[in-house]
Nucleic acid binder design. Structure first.
Length: 876
RNA sequence: GGGAGCAUAGCUCAGUUGGUUUAGAGCAUCUGCCUUACAAGCAGAGGGUCCGCGGUUCGAACCCGUGUGCUCCCACCA
């Protein structure tokens, strides 16, 4: 069959993915081999994959495919996350578009819609993962709300409660007024904002005096239950113990003292609003102040506010300011820069709010998680960058608020009776039993907690739960696959997810969930913004695959993104990937042409004077193979890909194939073709984890075969032969130098030249003369000192390029003089270095040896150039 | 307020135990090529005070300090 002019991914990709699936290559079943396990960071079912996911999945696929080819039982578990609050927000918005209000639905009706949403978007995501070529085991797809998973989350909740690690209590939490739910600290994002500081008069009770208090949130003054100053602030000592009047509602509140107050900030007086600020809350607790919540759950003013009831909070702020002005109680306004917390999901300003919620006591879980990393049991890549962050967070982490006032998620397994007593159990029946034994209430009338759990309370079980390990004791998968090998994820969820998975692993399995963590950087747009669905600044993955092919997308995203480094996404690297595909494709076409020619036995066999090329390339291949082995074990994937790219494009295509290329009327010997096929196959095998589709296609194009590259086991490597590599680089240098000279002197390639070489080391040219001549179109080659023509110096050898054409000597003289100047300077620096006793005394022997060699070489080169210059002078 | 990271060619980035006055790649630029695999290509070329300053060292893009600029994380200053 005729091969297409350019590589066409669309003709290849789906075909091979279906084939791999049909052959069940990605399916993993426990066996006698060692497992290499990866669990995918489950994408949220809120939408589609962006470039950050693409980078993530590509890294995982490279590691997994490579492990598979190295004889491991590779298992990559796909799945998705229900993403409680994010998805619920999406579903609510979707319903609204259809004219349906969430609160007009029952819980069950709402969940039906939510599951429909999950089906739709979950499948889009899975489709993208497949398009990208990910070798996941589709029989193991897991979802954080699957029945078994659901049950495991509930069981974990109950267990932790029994251990006393979960409690219910009223605490100040972060409240999202749009989603009307509590948030964990980690779900709050702080942003710099410019706001105002209002200075308000608080009159002293029964006196003419007043004090000025600065506040950012005048709308909460109705919740003030005290005013606080520093005990050592003389300005206010006379007021301590007295009362001041809260403006607008004319309520008297006490003036108290606390060391917390900074005398130098604002007016040195803080109004205490315990319901709406964490500091105020703590001070209030200490001094027994009342808590008055002036906000409703939706962020409007409550009855407690007494005035402006029902007004939205920011609207209320404006109105309060107006009222204060009218009453003559506003002293001044100041522009003020501060930071405000925003809900990660709804982007609304978060309200600190006192609320009864469920919490996990995190300190006890944190210690083992910290130890696992500090002891080196778990290795983080790149370590130096994230270790400190991880440590700091775990050492300072506060209790985790896990209840959410939502429907989409695992409903909290707690049952209440009418009097507010409650029992935690897996189901209502068990809860009833607890009521019976604990409170002596048989047949209690119970109502389940309305709230669901934080989505991370389910995803922290991911590495063990995807093997159904907790709820299915008979299932031995988990023992085989756990702990998993490597976790690949973005650095932005180190606290949300990575740290908590380690906690869960240590707590529930008494073992780490993974051995290595690979943090990818953030993929950003040209303006440096993180790519996210919210911003809509990520290109569509399927469109990119359509345009460049999946292999090119994988190549482009990998080529310059070492672990942990951010990446400004640039489509030109995808173009580079596409061009690379094409290059490989064309190499295939060339080899096939040779193959066919050889089979037909037409033409004269080539002179077989190019064995050197074969030996040399074998050596280069071996060298890069070794490097890649090391690089991948260090998780330096982009560096490995880069070496491979250069090996294929430069060494294989530009050098090797040209070196062995037969003349017009010649053919290659069968052995040489076989050898070339072998090289090409090896290259494809090395490249396969990075670019699975084209490599598989080529593997089959090269030969009719029943086996597939995807599961081909890699072969070994042998010791390096430095001499061959050195000779190869001499050959390359010589060819480039002569070609350069040709270019400079406008000697077209078609103009044959004669080559004379003056060298002390004729042996260096053994076996490469013919290649050299062919590559520079030289008609003859001899060892001899010559004159006239063009002289170039390669190492210390002088090349005389003889030609019929007239040569302008000034060009080469200029070049030689430039080289000479440089080499002389170099020689001086070398001489200085070697004359330095300290250098000779301190440097490693091999370094000194190298410097000495350099000196001799440079010396020889200079001599050669000087001689050439003399000859040119004489010639002119 | 605390902490981390980054600063290398016009652009996007590599450069992992400090060792060539000569620091790499892709894109872009320049020169020459429709050379029978590839113009998404071939053969070459040009382009860099490795952010500034100081230090350690025989030797620094790399280690230390400091300054500047950018990014990120954490934190309860009204």
């Amino acid at each position: 069959m005729e091969l297409s002019k350019n590589y066409e991914p669309s003709l290849v990709e789906d075909k091979w993915y279906s084939h791999w699936m049909a052959k069940k290559y990605f399916k993993s079943v426990p066996d006698s081999r060692k497992a290499y396990t990866v669990v995918i960071p489950p994408p949220n079912v809120t939408g589609v994959l962006h470039m950050g996911h693409t980078l993530n999945e590509t890294v995982q696929d490279i590691l997994v495919r490579r492990a598979r080819m190295n004889g491991y039982n590779a298992c990559w578990v796909p799945g998705s996350d229900h993403a409680s609050i994010a998805t619920e927000a999406k579903v609510v918005a979707m319903l609204k578009d259809r004219g349906i209000e969430k609160n007009s639905l029952s819980r069950e009706e709402f969940l039906k819609y939510a599951f429909e949403w999950k089906e739709k978007y979950g499948n889009i995501i899975y489709g993208q993962i497949a398009k990208l070529g990910c070798s996941v085991d589709w029989d193991r797809v897991s979802f954080t709300m699957d029945n078994e998973y659901f049950a495991a989350v509930i069981k974990v909740f109950v267990d932790l409660y029994k251990k006393g690690l979960i409690y219910r209590g009223a605490r100040m939490i972060n409240w999202d007024v749009v989603a009307k739910t509590a948030l964990s600290d980690e779900e709050v994002e702080y942003k710099d904002v410019t706001s105002k500081l209002y200075y308000v008069k608080y009159k002293v009770e029964n006196e003419d005096d007043y004090i000025s208090i600065a506040t950012q949130r005048p709308e909460t003054i109705m919740g003030d239950t005290g005013v606080c100053v520093n005990p050592h602030d003389e300005r206010y000592t006379h007021l301590v113990g007295k009362k001041v009047i809260v403006p607008l509602i004319n309520k008297a509140v006490p003036v108290i003292t606390d060391d917390y107050i900074d005398k130098n900030f604002g007016t040195g007086v803080l109004k205490i609003t315990p319901a709406h600020d964490i500091n105020d809350y703590n001070i209030g607790l200490k001094h027994n102040l009342a808590v008055i919540d002036v906000l409703n759950e939706d962020g409007t003013l409550s009855q407690e506010a007494q005035i402006l009831v029902g007004e939205e909070r920011f609207e209320a702020r404006k109105k309060v300011v107006e009222l204060l002005k009218d009453a003559g109680l506003l002293i001044k306004e100041e522009i003020y820069d501060s930071r405000l917390g925003y809900s990660q999901r709804t982007n609304s300003v978060v309200e600190p709010k006192i609320s009864t919620q469920w919490f996990v006591k995190i300190k006890e879980l944190a210690q083992p998680a910290l130890n696992a990393v500090l002891s080196g049991d778990i290795n983080i890549h790149p370590g130096e960058k994230f270790l400190a962050t991880y440590k700091y967070w775990l050492e300072n982490v506060k209790d985790w608020c896990i209840s959410r006032q939502l429907w989409w998620g695992q409903q909290i397994p707690a049952w209440y009776d009418d009097e507010g007593r409650f029992a935690v159990a897996e189901n209502e029946e068990k809860a009833k039993k607890i009521f019976n034994t604990q409170y002596a209430i048989p047949n209690a009338h119970l109502k389940r907690d309305e709230d669901v759990l934080d989505t991370w309370f389910s995803s922290w079980l991911w590495p063990m739960q995807v093997f159904k390990g907790i709820t299915a004791p008979g299932n031995t998968d988990i023992n085989y696959y756990y702990p998993t090998s490597v976790l690949v994820t973005g650095q932005d969820i180190i606290f949300f997810w990575v740290a908590r998975m380690i906690m869960a692993g240590m707590e529930f399995k008494n073992e780490k969930p993974f051995s290595d963590v690979y943090f990818t950087g953030m993929v950003r747009d040209k303006q440096g913004r993180k790519m996210s669905k919210q911003l809509g600044n990520s290109p569509d993955l399927l469109e990119l695959i359509e345009k460049y092919g999946a292999d090119a997308v994988r190549f482009g995203i990998m080529i310059s993104s070492p672990a942990g480094n951010d990446l400004l996404f640039d489509e030109s690297s995808l173009e580079q990937g596409r061009n690379f595909n094409n290059k490989v494709w064309n190499a295939l076409k060339l080899i096939k042409i040779w193959q066919n020619k050889s089979v037909e036995e037409s033409g004269i066999p080539s002179k077989e004077d190019n064995d050197f090329a074969v030996h040399w390339f074998e050596e280069r291949l071996n060298e890069v193979k070794t490097n890649i082995e090391i690089l991948i074990s260090q998780f330096r994937l982009s560096e490995a890909l880069k070496q491979l790219y250069s090996l294929i494009w430069d060494d294989f295509c530009s050098w090797y194939l040209e070196w062995i290329k037969p003349g017009f009327d010649q053919t290659l010997s069968k052995q040489k073709i076989a050898k070339t096929l072998y090289f090409f196959e090896e290259l494809m095998q090395l490249l396969h984890p990075f670019m699975p589709f084209i490599t598989e296609e080529i593997y089959h194009q090269l030969k009719e075969r029943d086996d597939d590259l995807t599961v081909k086991q890699s072969s070994g490597i042998h010791d390096k032969n430095q001499a061959l590599l050195k000779k190869g680089s001499l050959l390359k240098q010589a060819i480039t130098a002569v070609r350069d000279a040709r270019n400079k002197h406008q000697l077209k390639f078609a103009n044959k030249i004669d080559l004379a070489i003056q060298t002390e080391h004729k042996v260096n040219y053994n076996g490469i003369q013919n290649i050299l001549c062919k590559q520079v179109n030289a008609g003859s080659f001899r060892f001899e000192e010559a004159s006239g023509g063009i002289t170039v110096v390669v190492n210390a050898d002088k090349f005389f390029i003889e030609t019929e054409n007239k040569i302008d000597q000034s060009f080469q003289k200029e070049k030689l003089l430039k080289d000479l100047e440089h080499l002389k300077g170099f020689l001086i620096s070398l001489a200085k270095k070697l004359a330095n006793d300290k250098f000779v005394a301190n440097a490693k022997p091999e370094v000194i040896e190298l410097e000495r060699k350099k000196k001799t070489d440079t010396h020889d080169k200079i001599a050669a150039i000087e001689q050439s210059l003399r000859q040119i002078e004489a010639g002119i």
